[in-house]
Design a protein around this nucleic acid. Structure first.
Lengths: 217, 217
DNA sequence: GATTGTTTCATACGAACGTTTGAATCAATC
DNA sequence: GATTGATTCAAACGTTCGTATGAAACAATC
């Protein structure tokens, strides 16, 4: 393979950046993990920052082709497309076949963007947002305000991301609950049904319990 | 005030830890912002790590009394309590009357817990979780599984946190949309209605658009 | 096999880091 | 006003950081 060490550096750096953050991951540790010489970073990337950017870009490229959004047929109902969308996002997050740092480093960028990676992040996020918005456009009435459409989209993505970003809390809170690690499709099912019910495109996730007094909202 | 510089150090440290993370915030910068001598950290806290823990603990204590959950009367309908819960969480996040770092440093801990702060974080999160679960217990049927109840709770909190944690993405995506910064009560309204509709305790956030084909989920 | 360009290596540099130290300063007590 | 304990200060410690450098090793061309 051409530039084997260059690729090894990107992988090692990605792992460490994702795990410890930019500042806490030292070039020396990265090179040791990559089994490369200390000066290799300077030779291949000139600067630490550029190695970081390369890692982010690599993660973005890989995830594009990793768990791609399926090519849904035009006649596929919006409801099913939403379900497929949610499932794909969960698969991207929880599927273990690809290195975890690809996602992890992108999520770091998503929460606290680096100036140097803004474009890469936008390339990563924009297609997903467009896909979801396309689905919601079909699912929601035409006269709905642009802003409200966004908020519904955020409600979908917020639910999904929570399960990854705040995994530590979930484990902490649920440590007493006997559970089987919440399989992927169960999560996807929940979020999809929750959303569809919320926008009136599906049954509630539960039969409604008889409420004592109807409360004006 | 007793130990004025000690408190100044905690505040300055909190700001910097919240902004740049633990490693990237240097003792020198912290002391400069606190207008204290470099050795002050060692004198008052012995170690950098202990200063960090003190900052986290301080943030947790303050936020307890900051925007406390209102003492809801026993007869208050669960629907209204949910609305109040969501509003309080948003207020805690977006209200600008208290230093931002209190929340920010807790969210960092929530996403990537530090061993030394585990107990503090649990004290922070557990009451909120209990409150929400109490509301959901009244709102959901009794025969619902513990696991499913948790997932609905996560759907609520996931929506709320998204607006804070991923503010950068929201700004990026919505930069073309003319919007008025999304006022607090509008967000709270959306999340509450979205959730109530999802669990069948309220009307859908939109009148359902007539779907072409009903799709089995 | 000498030459050339690329990649690796051991080593060194200066800066910044967390931490330490001992003297200086302050505030209160007698 | 001397004594004591708590706090601040300037200066230095040894480490580790990112980066730079020049020689060695390697590969390919002629």
């Amino acid at each position: 393979m051409v530039d084997d060490t260059k690729q090894r550096l990107i992988n090692a750096a990605g792992e460490m950046f994702a795990e410890k953050g930019y500042e806490a991951a030292s070039i020396r540790d990265i090179c040791q993990r990559a089994e490369a010489n200390l000066a290799a970073v300077n030779y291949h990337f000139v600067e630490k920052r550029q190695l970081y950017v390369a890692a982010v870009r690599h993660a973005q490229c890989c995830r594009q082709e990793d768990v791609p959004f399926p090519e849904w047929p035009a006649e596929m109902p919006a409801v099913d497309r939403l379900r497929a969308f949610v499932e794909t996002m969960f698969a991207r997050m929880l599927a273990g076949d690809r290195p975890r740092w690809h996602l992890e480093i992108m999520l770091r960028e998503l929460a606290r963007p680096t100036e140097a990676c803004a474009a890469v992040v936008e390339d990563y996020i924009r297609p997903m947002a467009d896909t979801l918005r396309g689905i919601l456009r079909d699912l929601l009435p035409d006269d709905m305000s642009e802003e409200q459409r966004w908020m519904i989209g955020f409600s979908v993505v917020g639910q999904i991301l929570f399960y990854y970003v705040h995994q530590p809390i979930i484990r902490l809170l649920m440590q007493n609950v006997q559970t089987t690690e919440m399989p992927l499709d169960q999560l996807a099912n929940h979020v999809t049904r929750f959303t569809l019910a919320a926008i009136g495109a599906g049954p509630a996730v539960v039969r409604p319990v008889p409420t004592a007094t109807g409360s004006a909202l």
